[in-house]
């Protein structure tokens, strides 16, 4: 059985590197597709020509992104029938109330604030992988 990829939407190369490291260290084998801004994320999900690729197992979505921000990306994911059930985990720096509210209102499945402490961050990624890739039953395609 081929593992569905993880879509990591992250514009900061350090955070990208640290997230990949945390995934690796926790033996998460899924392919990680990286989108560095909002439009790239949408392109990965819906294809440049509108064709649908393989839906990701989970989208790890940063909020502060160039061009289209994470909240807007989430809105479009939920607005499209092909992706409206796709698990989306907001993985971001802020715990500003407005972000939390907007995230959950638009149907984010989870909201995780990246800890500064890498050990804690790695632990959070481990839980995240365990939950969304193993424990959780994904929606039917």
């Amino acid at each position: 059985m081929t593992l569905k990829p993880i879509l990591l939407v992250e514009d900061n190369p350090d955070d990208e590197e640290l997230t990949l490291r945390a995934l690796r260290k926790n033996n998460i084998q899924n392919e990680v597709v990286i989108a560095r801004d909002g439009p790239q994320a949408l392109e990965h999900l819906f294809g440049a020509d509108g064709a649908v690729g393989v839906g990701p197992a989970v989208v790890l979505l940063d909020l502060k992104l160039p061009k289209l921000d994470g909240i807007e990306v989430l809105r479009r994911i939920r607005a499209d029938h092909r992706t409206r059930l796709t698990p989306v985990v907001i993985l971001t720096s802020s715990r500003e109330e407005q972000d939390l509210i907007a995230g959950y209102e638009l149907g984010a499945n989870s909201y995780i604030r990246k800890p500064v402490d890498f050990v804690q961050f790695s632990e959070a990624v481990r839980h995240l992988g365990l939950y969304w890739l193993i424990i959780n039953e994904p929606p039917p395609v």
Partner: peptide
Amino acid sequence: FSYSVSHDLRQPLRSIDGFSQV
């Protein structure tokens, strides 16, 4: 300002901490 602090000021700290750990 708070919003930006909340988002942007912590990221470099994550790099400092994370790569020290590396």
